[in-house]
Design a protein around this nucleic acid. Structure first.
Lengths: 202, 202
DNA sequence: CCCATCTCGGACACAACGTCCAGCAATGTC
DNA sequence: GACATTGCTGGACGTTGTGTCCGAGATGGG
């Protein structure tokens, strides 16, 4: 890995930009934020911004680049749970989102951009796929993908809804709802899939 | 209703714009299309465009404004089905999307804008809510909303995935998968299902 | 045939993006 | 502590797209 620790100035600049962005997102929503806004608030030259990031998007996603690894480690770390319960990411994520509710609402909520949602989708897809393979030992690849898509869509949908609501539901409650809604269908679907191998003759 | 049939010129212009937009969406994707592109292809003055629509978005959604009513009528019309099977929109929609696959992929696919997805979300939410109320007689309003969110998210997610794939799955197959994945969870979550009709297709 | 209405076309102001460069400042190293 | 390296500044510039405005001309409906 190319891990030469960068210049202090670089760190400073990047942090300033990241924090400015987050503040602005909370105020105006991501889409309404311009590069001008960001460098203005961060007290950084416009050209400096482009020296670091090609895009507004790059800045945002750069902040998230650490997260996937973190989650992956968390999920692997808790093998005790991971061994018996599928989708352990769910409750963790709900809690995390609850802590940073305002930011998450702005980023993953229903009236936000798609960028972060898409990123989240990608990360979750891998986790879910791994869990499904572990718990169901499916043979049909396409059925697996359909199930992954189903679980992730349902999850992100519920998450977005929950964030966007002045709701008294706790992370635990919404997590329970998620499991109750998703697990039966998956069990039935992948069970049938292995025995019956849905669909065309391969 | 204010249904004075408008001037021929108006009709002509609007149709030209709509068709130009669709063509351009198929070529470049919605986001990449500019108002300039549209009026250019439609051979319409720029100012004329703004005399009809405030936005690129308005033009697009204007085209869809007829659709919800159509679906609602379809759904109400087929009371024979509607009486025994929930979510009759599903297969219809899958078929419709299959017919216009390229356009739908550009509009509802996973790398498309959110506009149409959101519109679709709204329309489907109402349909799904109605069906859930009819089939489950729920008392808890919040549980109902959670279930609606779940069903719609799962549906739109599967639809998007299916469109974006060079997949040999027919509308019927993906519809069956959708029902198999969604119905058990809903039944369990909302309590007693009045009719336990788990996807009998034909 | 005439009037109302629509369309044209081009000019304009504006907002944001992304690039470039010369001069200055901070940094890590020896 | 001196110095070469690297990063930052700040503002000018070109570009693209948006949305508005208006007078002149074309076209439709009664």
């Amino acid at each position: 890995m190319n891990r030469e620790r960068p210049d202090r100035r670089v760190i400073r600049t990047r942090r300033a930009l990241r924090e400015a962005l987050i503040g602005l997102i909370l105020e105006k929503g991501y889409d309404a934020v311009t590069v001008g806004d960001i460098v203005d608030r961060a007290d950084v030259g416009r050209s400096t911004f482009y020296a670091h990031f090609v895009d507004k998007d790059a800045l945002l996603l750069g902040g998230f680049s650490a997260l996937p690894t973190l989650w992956a480690e968390e999920s692997r770390g808790s093998d005790a749970d991971g061994g018996t319960i599928p989708f352990t990411f769910s409750l963790k994520m709900f809690r995390h989102a609850d802590d940073q509710r305002r930011l998450f609402r702005a980023l993953v909520g229903q009236r936000s951009g798609v960028l972060v949602q898409r990123q989240l989708d990608r990360v979750l897809s891998d986790l879910v796929r791994a869990d499904l393979e572990r718990f169901h030992a499916v043979g049909d690849d396409r059925a697996l993908e359909v199930a992954v898509r189903f679980v992730v869509s349902a999850y992100v949908g519920l998450l977005g809804w929950w964030l966007e609501h002045p709701t008294p539901a706790t992370p635990e409650e919404i997590d329970r709802a998620f499991r109750a809604l998703v697990l039966p269908g998956v069990a039935g679907f992948l069970g049938v899939a292995t025995a019956n191998s849905t669909g065309r003759s391969t």
